[in-house]
């Protein structure tokens, strides 16, 4: 059986897979990282979004073997070791950007890449278009957009999260 070696959330893993094993199957079933969700399984909903070598990808539309030698970050890899939330997670919490939570891991991973990729700034329209690959059936998106806008200055060191 082929082997794939990859770094997930800072930790190296070597795993036996089949040719057809998807990256999301490796994460969920081999590594037990079930924070990454499978929503549609047809490449539309974005619930399975993770970072592969720094950019957002749909892990249900990536073979595990394509990620060989790669660096993967999942939702479990965002918060600090002491449990302090990533600024995007904190912004989602603060702005009530989730309801059922099913799309949230993928939404957060897409949003983190979107903010990282746009140090010059993000308009509301940029955020809405930038998250086209993630579907949410609860929130109506408005609070997600607010959360991403709020996380941008924190992630770029322009502002700290206001104390409650």
């Amino acid at each position: 059986m082929p082997q794939v070696t990859l770094t997930v959330n800072g930790k190296s893993h070597t795993v036996e897979v089949e040719g057809r094993t998807l990256l999301v199957e490796l994460l969920r079933e081999k590594l037990g990282l079930t924070g990454t969700h499978v929503g549609c399984d047809t490449s539309q909903c974005g619930a399975c979004t993770v970072h592969l070598n720094g950019t957002s990808v749909k892990s249900c539309t990536t073979l595990a073997l394509q990620a060989d030698g790669g660096v993967v970050t999942t939702i479990e890899g965002l918060a600090a070791a002491d449990g302090t939330l990533h600024p995007m997670q904190e912004a989602f919490r603060e702005h009530h950007a989730l309801q059922c939570g099913f799309c949230t891991p993928g939404m957060v991973m897409s949003a983190v890449d979107l903010v990282n990729s746009n140090p010059q700034g993000l308009s509301e329209s940029d955020i809405r278009h930038g998250l086209e690959g993630n579907l949410c059936r609860c929130t109506g998106y408005h609070n997600i957009v607010k959360a991403v806008a709020a996380a941008w200055p924190v992630m770029h060191g322009k502002e700290t999260v206001a104390a409650e």
């Binding site: 974005g46 950019t55 690959g133």
Partner: peptide
């Protein structure tokens, strides 16, 4: 084309 995740691959 598609969305950002698709455009990345």
């Amino acid at each position: 084309i598609g969305d950002w995740q698709v455009r990345h691959r």
